[in-house]
Amino acid sequence: MSTLLPPPKELAMLPVDWVEERSGAISFGKFMLFRNVPKDISWLQTLGSALITVFILQATTGIILAMYYQPTPETAWMTIQWITNEATLGWLVRGMHKWGSSVMVVLLFLHMGRTFLFGAYKYPREMTWITGAIIFILVMGMSFTGYLLVFDERAYWATIVGVNINGTAPILGPALSYILMVGPEIGTHTLSRFYSLHMLVLPSAIGGLIFLHMLLVVRLGVTSPPWSRMEPTERDV
C-alpha cells in the first residue's frame, strides 16, 4: 500500500520538482539568490533596488487610481477631488503616487551619480548605462504626462507651456505638439492621449528597460568599488 505514495517529505516536493523540471525556475532562483557579488559593496549599491521598489509602488498606486479616475475634461478633476476627499484612504494612494514620483526622480539622480563617481559605466557596462539613461528620460516623460491628469489650473497651463516647448523644435516641433495635444488645443483627446501614454506606453517601455538593465547587471556582475583590491580573503588562507 505505502509503496503507492512516496514519503511525505518527497510528496511535498513533487510540485516544486514538477516546476523545476519544466522551467528551471528553482535553480534560476537559487542562482539569483546565491550568486556572488563583490565583498566590499554596501549601502551605496542599494539605490537601484530602491528604484525598483518605487517603480512597483507607482505601478500599484497607479492601478488603484486608474480604478476611479476618468480621463475627460468634465470628469478628470471631479474624480481627483473624489479620490482625495471621499474615497477611503484615497488621499494616501494619490499622495503616495504624487510624492513617489518626486522621490523616484531624486533616487534616479543619486543612482546615476553613484554610478558616475564609481566609474561603473565603463567597459563592459556601457549598455547598462545607456538603458539607465533612457529610463531616466522616460521617467521625465512620465512626470510630464502625469502632471496634466489632475486637470487643475496649474496642470493645464504648465502642460500648454510644456507642449509649446516641444513645438519650438525645428521641422518636427509643430507636428509633435499637434500629435501630443491631438489638435491645436488641449481637449478631450489630449487627456486620454496623455493618460494612455502615462499608464500604458511609458510604463511598459520603462518596465522592459528595467528588465534589460537588470539582465545586464546580473550577467556582467556588480561593479566593485574603485578602491577595491583583488586580495584573497581570510577564507583562502
Binding site: S101, S102, D152, E153, Y156, W157, A158
Partner: peptide, 17 residues
Amino acid sequence: YEAKADPGVLGYHPQPD
C-alpha cells in the same frame, strides 16, 4: 488640488513640477 482647469480664467501661473 487647485481649481478645475478653465481656459477662460484670467490669471494663471504655469508652474511645472
